[in-house]
Design a protein around this nucleic acid. Structure first.
Lengths: 126, 126
DNA sequence: TGCGGATATGCAGGCGAATCAATGCTGTTG
DNA sequence: CAACAGCATTGATTCGCCTGCATATCCGCA
């Protein structure tokens, strides 16, 4: 592995809504698609949901394999995808690795998908 | 393909936010993942953006192949995916097929992704 | 009726993703 | 120190998707 860059936190996102004003660029489309692709998986959606609804808002891998019905390596794989996408953060305490949501991450995606509502994007109204 | 059902409009969506309360069910996760998967593609994001920013908010296939740099069958394919996901609606006028956004569709996804903010998920529960 | 343009569909190649088994690594416990 | 438990990584397999080419279908027009 190399670049464990959090596509959301660091690179931020396209910075322009795909439904805001002018057509989006190829590069922006690919970046946003990358984050959405991390979300577009049943197992990963359930992982986010499970972690969010866990006692302290955090969970370790051993707590997640059973409810998902997936093997431990597979769960680790999905958690890795979500973490690299900037949706999860990992904290290792002892033998356990605790994952929790990055609070603003999913909200940022939701904002990007929220069209020309009254969201003042500087008079981005086409 | 059979069922050209609009996963969003007709079947609606999970009805529960993946980040709302209790963990989401497998079926709901798969449904939401299905719609997100339709979004998680650079070409399709650009299609949505192009259509939304078109003169009348609508565009036909012939207007979309050039800016995307994809072949006509491929563009038709993507438009089909988006339409079946409930994100686009198709209207055939003469020889041309005009596509436009389903206004509430993407907003619905954004709402689902918007976490336990102060959003009252009172009604529509269940 | 026949021709041509605009879309949709079938088919196939190629790449990426999801999954699991096996293995390596690290920290805990006896 | 040795054995063990929790996670991550690698390799292999399977599956699905994106794309283009060829072809079929539909509609307006001469």
């Amino acid at each position: 592995m190399e670049h464990v860059g959090t596509a959301l936190a660091e690179t931020t996102l396209p910075a322009i809504s795909p439904l805001g004003g002018e057509p989006i660029e190829r590069a922006d489309a690919e970046r946003l698609a990358g984050v959405l692709k991390a979300l577009a998986d049943p197992a990963r959606l359930r992982l986010l949901s499970l972690i969010q609804s866990a006692p302290e808002g955090e969970a370790c891998v051993c707590d997640l394999t059973a409810p998902l019905g997936l093997s431990q390596p597979t769960v680790s794989h999905h958690l890795r995808i979500l973490t690299e996408a900037g949706l999860l953060e990992r904290e290792k305490r002892g033998v356990w690795a605790y994952y929790r949501l990055v609070p603003t991450a999913i909200g940022a995606i939701a904002d990007l998908l929220t069209p020309p509502r009254k969201r003042a994007t500087k008079k981005a109204a086409r």
